[in-house]
């Protein structure tokens, strides 16, 4: 029994120290994004650009694929329900609002967490275990400025962009389904989409996706920089990073949706 309590205590302590570590990393990252460049050294734009290509441009296809088919599925599922009320044309608004407020940001974030978050942890983790991070330190190159900040900025810019594209792809999927299979008039579909889709639907979605970007980048970098124990350690860190990101994205989604819901946004 005592062992059991001790094990729980140990687990809680290590989780708390990880949360603390992530906040310390956040503080250092924000310092190098907003203050560091002006009083110390600027960030390499080439690095940020490279990361943007890897994190954003190369994720385009898979985000498009996932959201497009989700749009089609949403259209079918909602048509099934709305048909009982004889209100099939509202498939349009349902798909649009659901994509913009919820499915677009979350799906894009989950896809990027799996693709980019894992890659960040694996790369930084193998740099850590092969002493490359230490090498940066001994050359007076701050690892946070050099490794974390470019990935952080790139993801903060690219994930909202991917989200917008994902929302659009989902709406196109819903449109194709609605018009060519369910049989809603094309003009009516577009009309209803824009009648019900408000600007706030778009920007609440974007607020979500910026928060998700922060979660993915920070957890990915933290787990990578704290990887220990060779190849196995890097593998473990990558798994933990992706799983933690997934959980935190869903949690943050729930909290943010609650805030938007109760504040009537």
């Amino acid at each position: 029994m005592l062992n059991f309590i001790a094990a729980i205590g140990k687990r809680v302590l290590s989780t708390l120290s990880q949360i603390g570590g992530i906040f310390i990393l956040l503080k250092a990252t924000l310092f190098w994004v907003f203050i560091g460049p002006f009083i110390k050294k600027p960030i390499s734009y080439r690095n940020i650009f490279q990361q943007m290509v890897f994190e954003g441009v190369n994720s385009l296809l898979i985000v498009f694929f996932v959201t497009f088919f989700t749009g089609i599925v949403l259209a079918m599922q909602s048509a099934y329900q709305l048909a009982q009320l004889g209100a099939e044309m509202y498939v349009a608004s349902l798909v649009a609002v659901a994509m913009a407020r919820e499915m677009g940001p979350v799906l894009a974030a989950l896809v990027v967490a799996g693709r980019v978050g894992a890659a960040i942890t694996a790369e930084l983790g193998s740099m850590q275990v092969t002493e490359q991070v230490e090498a940066l330190q001994t050359q007076a190159l701050n690892p946070v400025r050099f490794l974390v900040v470019p990935r952080f900025i790139a993801l903060m810019v690219m994930l909202p962009c991917l989200t917008i594209l994902g929302v659009f792809a989902g709406m196109v999927g819903g449109y194709l389904m609605g018009v060519f299979s369910i049989g809603i008039n094309s003009g009516v579909y577009i009309d209803i989409t824009f009648k019900f889709l408000a600007l706030k639907d778009i920007y609440t979605g974007l607020i979500k996706s910026v928060s998700f970007a922060m979660i993915i980048a920070l957890i990915g970098c933290y787990m990578g920089l704290n990887a220990k124990g060779g190849a196995e350690g890097v593998g473990r860190a990558t798994t933990v990073s992706v799983v933690t990101s997934f959980i935190m994205i869903i949690l943050a989604d729930c909290v943010l949706t609650g805030i938007f819901f109760f504040s009537q946004m």
Binding site: E131, Q132, A135
Partner: peptide, 8 residues
């Protein structure tokens, strides 16, 4: 460094 730790 022991294994050179070159930046990959």
């Amino acid at each position: 460094f022991q294994d050179a730790a070159l930046y990959d």
